[in-house]
Design a protein around this nucleic acid. Sequence first.
DNA 1: GATGCTCTTTGACGACTGTCAAGACTTCTC
DNA 2: GAGAAGTCTTGACAGTCGTCAAAGAGCATC
Lengths: 205, 205
Amino acid sequence: MTAAAHRLGRRPVDKVAARRSELAAAALKTLAERGYAQTGLRDIAQNSDFSHGVLHYYFADKTDLITHCVREYKERCATRYDEVVATATTAEELAAGFLRKLTETLTDEAPMHRLWYDLRNQSMFEPAFRADVAEIDLLLERMIGRIVTRYAELSGRTPQVAPPVVYAVFDGLFQQALLRQLAGVPSAAGELRAAVGQVLPHLVR
Amino acid sequence: MTAAAHRLGRRPVDKVAARRSELAAAALKTLAERGYAQTGLRDIAQNSDFSHGVLHYYFADKTDLITHCVREYKERCATRYDEVVATATTAEELAAGFLRKLTETLTDEAPMHRLWYDLRNQSMFEPAFRADVAEIDLLLERMIGRIVTRYAELSGRTPQVAPPVVYAVFDGLFQQALLRQLAGVPSAAGELRAAVGQVLPHLVR
DNA sequence: GATGCTCTTTGACGACTGTCAAGACTTCTC
DNA sequence: GAGAAGTCTTGACAGTCGTCAAAGAGCATC
């Protein structure tokens, strides 16, 4: 532990963690652009301020790097709708805010979403990814769960479908919309909006 | 065209197509085992009766091969529930048969399903795959659509949700179940059964 | 049996892969 | 300022990738 670290109240491990996070972010960017199958360590390094060797300094191997990428991804995505949930005062307002955020992220962050589906799929083949992927999937499930719970509250009804099922349903709808969006179908966001709007009322009673 | 081909009333192009199909089948097997990112042409050849060079004889390049794989996959999967649809005489019988087939294929053909999701995801990055993948997705959508239509008929009601939405919903449920199944969760099939059984009544009115 | 055609194997090419060691550069400690 | 510790670059390694040319094998035809 350095004196400077003492002075700033910051341990060296934080610096290492920060660099790791920085490199994982560069890796995420590359993976979102090219996909897991087409992404090498040198591609990732080129999207960062460092050379490819530094990756082996901060990560044991490629699997370790990808694992940290998944965790980095987690930090970003699990609070997307929390503000809407916190501020909405009616069921209609909540639904509208959810739909707005949902279609926004579909159009604005499509590459990031395809990366997530790519990594989640890799976990079907590579056991090393499974635990972290499952953890994020659970996080996302709870995020959706909070929306539906609040939606039920605001509309004076009760949730009728268990959170894992609700999440699977919305995830399926979103994935289909993402496929269309990336294929250049301009109506993808609108169709997603319509589909979710149609499904939402069925989840409470 | 050879004389033999004439005699048998079989054009040489059919032999070529048959071999292509055979190699694509070997490729599918390999892809289901190892995933797209970890599958090379030599791996595929080792799962066939031929050496790796023959792949370049029957396919222009790797993309061409994968495209044929997707089409080969199509031939197998789109009629899975047709018998159930044709023979069921009551809504309950249809639902039960659908659920049985659904959980059966989840447990017995999990590697093949993860391959499909892998290839569909690749199409988000590789435009060359998009058309064929979209075509299969449409086939699957119609397959699910036939079930719901018949289910509505048998129960004297009418479908309330458009086929693309129904397909997306079931696909999302199935994908979550597949993730759990491949992660070794023994209750995956049962949970899928429960979830689909819970959702199905909401689709008609 | 020789010829020509189709199919298949073999081996090699250049490029790329993940990994890692050696050294250079920076930063901190005393 | 010397030395140590931490950080980063460079270059190379063994292996794999997709691709393809050359030659061999199998077989029908003349």
